[in-house]
Design a binder for these strands. Structure first.
Length: 565
RNA sequence: CGGGGUGUGGCGCAGUGGUUAGCGCGCAUGGUUUGGGACCAUGAGGUCGCCGGUUCAAAUCCGGCCACCCCGACCA
């Protein structure tokens, strides 16, 4: 490709709207263009890189026996109502009406349609296992698109679905795909960490995310300094420190004028926050729920949402709290019967807690569970923190941020049961198909690759996903010798199957070299009167500081060798 | 949705009531240049986000709306 003909210009100043490095560089390099919040055009260079990522993903999916197909983005809303995922996705679901006023959705993912398709085509255990996938556009009306390609409302996703006869077989498929994912990230030049994750709106019981460790990442990760435990913060468990052992004492009311928060309470009584019980009220799909947890620990709302099996969870309003007969600031789990009560096991890690009295300006000392109150659900709903104990080995948990570049789910029979996707086993018995769902955001992966591979001058593409492999950059192009040598080399490289970006512009050296650094092709080749004197070219890897001079004779082979290194 | 911010040629910005709205970069034409964002000359390009109001006069003041960005609650 000749730069003089290339659509898309590099910018000298970074557009002010970009905060993220990948966003800045993609804009500055003329690889993407924003159309609306979370909707981008890919210009030719950006599109080539995206296609490279896509092809790597495609190869790895094919290699494990995946079959590529294509399903529609446009889908009837009814299909989503059958699985109640119209509720689960809520406002993130793009819904539109057709001319007959039928409701259609722009699909954010394809479990329903795939399951429906498989239901029609699979009857026997002999048809399983099955791996189907597509690489296709998804729509999600994100509350807040951000970071350029990091989080957009229209994006290309590779989504694969596995179909198996039972749980063990599902786990085998799952493992295969996890292996393929690891190879994909490796090939894209991205070290990715696999972490335990919440299933969110996709559903299912077990799920893992692939994270690229990056300061700019949206996700928070806890990982063990000792073993290989790693989890998204919203899923992470931890071992909390236990309070000192002590004998249970009898209840005692105390006056606490004006004390509302745990912090103030602890200060007022001169005790650690871990000696208090915190009451928090939530509205779960409209129902007020009482939550109690040790005072020093935060509620993990994702865990709570899963426990309550609700679609919408938020803190209850003051009116809702009052309406439930509770006194905010001094609420108590004691004596409550007509609201659902959820407790975290941390309330048993100690004794003689201070809790609310459900009377204004009053608390109660020496509260002990289960002596003094009962709960409906006792389960882990605690937020884990760095420094706490690893749930697997007890080691110390550490914190980092990451970019989620893939997510895999064990769905079990959630979709197949609701949509009637069954098969006959060898004994002629009808059974629900065990499914898995596996997604990679292609554009996000591209952005993550740039976040990981750049310097102050620009992008440093890994060879595998670079738009072009070689950036041919003649200097002094009005020198006819240089111009013709460059033309010859350009043709020769292409004939040898190399992908070449040829800067044939009559720009000054500074402009061309800076553009080459910004665009970031893996190898830069310079021809100039100087190099031609010795019938040579200067070759420099974008990732390295030093250039080398190689003879023009045999340069193609040298370049190939450098690229495959 | 809560909080913060920004809208002025392609990009970065200036312009707090008073001529035909400026500057840098980029772009076009001609010329001189060519190993790290060259120089000279000439030129094109703007309903100042939109609607309404105040005023003799609005990019500038007032009201409403919209868009975009950032921080949080959601996700590949």
């Amino acid at each position: 490709m000749r730069v003089s003909k290339l659509f898309g210009k590099t910018l000298r100043q970074t557009p002010s709207e970009a905060e993220n490095i990948s966003h800045q560089l993609l804009l500055k390099a003329g690889m993407i263009h924003q159309v609306a919040a979370g909707a981008y055009s890919y210009l030719p260079l950006g599109w080539r890189a995206l296609k490279k990522v896509e092809n790597i993903v495609r190869q790895e999916m094919d290699d494990i026996g995946g079959q590529e197909l294509h399903m529609p983005v446009l889908q009837p809303l009814e299909l989503w109502q059958q699985t109640e995922r119209d509720q689960a996705f809520g406002k993130s679901l793009f819904i539109l009406s057709d001319r007959r006023d039928r409701k259609l959705v722009l699909a954010p993912t394809h479990e329903e349609v795939t399951t429906e398709l498989v239901r029609r085509n699979v009857q026997s255990y002999r048809d399983l296992p099955l791996l189907l996938y597509q690489i296709q556009t998804k729509f999600r009306d994100e509350p807040r698109p951000r970071g350029g390609l990091m989080r957009v409302r229209e994006f290309t996703m590779k989504d694969m679905y596995s179909f198996d006869t039972d749980e063990d077989a599902m786990n085998v498929s799952y493992g295969k795909i996890v292996g393929a994912y690891e190879r994909i990230y490796q090939r894209c030049g991205l070290p990715a960490l696999i972490v335990d994750a919440d299933s969110g709106a996709i559903g299912g019981k077990e799920s893992h995310e692939f994270m690229v460790i990056a300061e700019s990442g949206e996700d928070q990760i806890l990982y063990c300094s000792n073993c290989d435990y790693a989890a998204n913060l919203e899923k992470a468990d931890s071992i909390k420190a236990e309070n000192e052992k002590e004998e249970m004492l009898s209840l005692e009311e105390i006056a606490t004028p004006g004390i509302i928060t745990i912090k103030d309470l602890a200060k007022f009584l001169n005790i650690p926050e871990s000696k208090t019980l915190k009451a928090v009220f939530y509205s779960a799909d409209g129902e007020v729920v009482f939550v109690v947890i040790r005072g020093d620990i935060e509620v993990n709302e994702v865990k709570l949402k899963n426990v309550l099996k609700c679609h919408e969870l938020r803190l209850a309003t003051e009116e809702e709290v009052r309406g439930a007969g509770l006194v905010a600031g001094s609420a108590s789990p004691m004596g409550l019967t007509d609201i659902r009560r959820v407790a975290d096991p941390s309330i048993t890690l100690g004794a003689n807690f201070v809790a609310g009295a459900n009377k204004p300006d009053t608390h109660v000392k020496n509260v002990n569970y289960p002596r003094d109150f009962a709960v409906d659900i006792m389960t882990d709903i605690a937020t884990a923190n760095a420094g706490e104990g690893c749930p697997r080995c007890g080691g110390k948990l550490l914190f980092t941020r990451g970019i989620e570049v893939g997510h895999v789910f064990k769905l079990g029979t959630f979709f197949s049961e609701r949509l009637g996707a069954t098969f006959l086993d060898p004994g002629g018995v009808g059974r629900s198909i065990f499914m898995g769902s596996y997604g990679i955001g292609i554009g996000r992966l591209l952005a993550a690759a740039i976040e990981q591979n750049h310097d102050e001058k620009g992008i440093i593409w890994p060879v595998s996903i670079a738009p072009y492999q070689v950036h041919l950059c003649p200097i002094s192009t009005d020198d006819s010798e240089v111009a013709s040598a460059a033309d010859r080399l350009y043709l020769q490289l292409q004939e040898e199957g190399l992908e070449v970006l040829f800067d044939d512009r009559t720009e000054s050296p500074g402009v061309k070299l800076n553009d080459a650094d910004l665009l970031g092709m893996p190898v830069r080749v310079i021809l100039s009167p100087r190099t031609l004197k010795s019938q040579s070219a200067e070759v420099k890897r974008r990732s390295e500081k030093e250039a080398m001079i190689i003879p023009l004779e045999g340069s193609v082979e040298r370049l190939k060798a450098i690229l495959s290194r």
